[in-house]
Amino acid sequence: MRLHEYEALDIFEYVGIPVPRRGIAGTMHEALQIAGEIGYPVMLKAQVLVGGRGLAGGIRMVSTPDELKEVAEGLLSSEIKGLPVRKILVCEKVEIAKELYVGITVDGYSGKPVIVVSTEGGVRIEETAKTSPEKIASIHVEPSFGYYPYQARTLLRMLGLKQQLITTWTDVIGKLYNIALRCEALISEINPLVVLPNGGLLAVDAVLEVDDSALSRIRYALPDRVERIENPLERRGREIGVTYVDLDGDIGLISSGAGLGMASMDIIGERMKPANFLETGGGITADLLYRCMELIMMKPDLRAIFINVYGGINPIHEGAKGVVRYIREHNVKIPIVAKALGNRQEETWEIFRSAGVHVVTEAATEKAIDRLYELVGGN
């Protein structure tokens, strides 16, 4: 779960990382009040869970109340990359002597935390890595050994920094690592970490993404992860306990595993367009598959549905009962193709066939997609 900037800044401030004076506003009047308390000029920053807000016009500086009224109203009625702006962060405008970068993530190869620092902040770290690799340094932290400040000092000396900056930046890195550890974060990042004219540091932006499986163990007060999902279909998927990703196509998909689902999407995509990704995991029941059908059918202009399930630990015959019940109760007319293999597969086939589902018994998913393509007319 990714946190909004203002939520991450609150946690950063709690552990002692210096952050700007700020407030969160849901209306133009709230923004005016916060700006009056902080003092102009201020920065208005749209709060959406997506990167690239600045390039999309979601970060603006205002110098007067009249200017704030116009900009705040515009931001609160806008969308950034398809996401509506419901709140804006009002924060002080600071003088910047230098912009730095610091981030902590998990190395996918070693599985260890990696600390990345750069003397070039305010831009995508990937771009800096390509154009100026000498301005980036990184170090892995051995989990059994832990993190110690000398590791950060060694890292920062590689960038040729002065001792005063090394000392203050080392303190920030230690606190950021503490957050990453306590929140079991997939990424914790400050970009930019600005150097003020007096030599101090300030985190003027904050990124924090928490591993969903760790949410119950984190002591910080975190928002409800379901409520913050903007897409109503994806929110419904989370509520019923399946992984659902909304797409632009018109072929609905239900699969019993992530790999099976992604392979199905790829094959569908060769000649048609999948409307979604949905995988049930290992807890198939008749009621769950009924709700999956309900979710799939919420998608407008659906042309067909493809069901691809495997009966290893999953009772696919029970899932088939849920699909059939939905078909009969709602008189579903669009073509439905099912490939169901594994435990009690023959029973599953007969249940599907009883409701007019087109069952493909071959093991290759391509065969099932061929049948699906024939049924939708090859359009």
Rank of each mutant, 00 (worst) to 15 (best):
H4Y: 11
E5K: 07
A8K: 13
I17T: 12
P20A: 07
I34H: 08
I34P: 00
G36F: 14
E37F: 10
L44T: 10
L55I: 13
M61V: 06
D66A: 06
E79Y: 11
K81S: 08
G82H: 06
I88V: 15
L89I: 06
K93R: 10
E95C: 02
G103R: 00
P113G: 04
S118L: 14
E120L: 14
V123G: 07
E127W: 11
A129T: 05
K130M: 07
S132E: 07
K135Y: 03
I136S: 06
F145K: 14
Y148E: 12
A152P: 15
L161R: 08
L161Y: 10
K162E: 15
K162I: 15
L193G: 11
P197E: 07
G199A: 13
G200E: 12
V204G: 01
E227D: 09
E227S: 09
E227M: 04
I229T: 09
E234Q: 06
R238K: 10
D246L: 10
D248A: 04
G249R: 08
R271H: 06
E279G: 00
G281L: 05
G282K: 03
I284Q: 02
T285V: 08
A286F: 01
D287A: 07
C292G: 02
A304L: 04
F306A: 08
A320P: 09
K321H: 05
V323K: 10
V337E: 02
N343T: 13
W349R: 00
A355V: 01
D370Y: 00
L372P: 00
G377S: 02
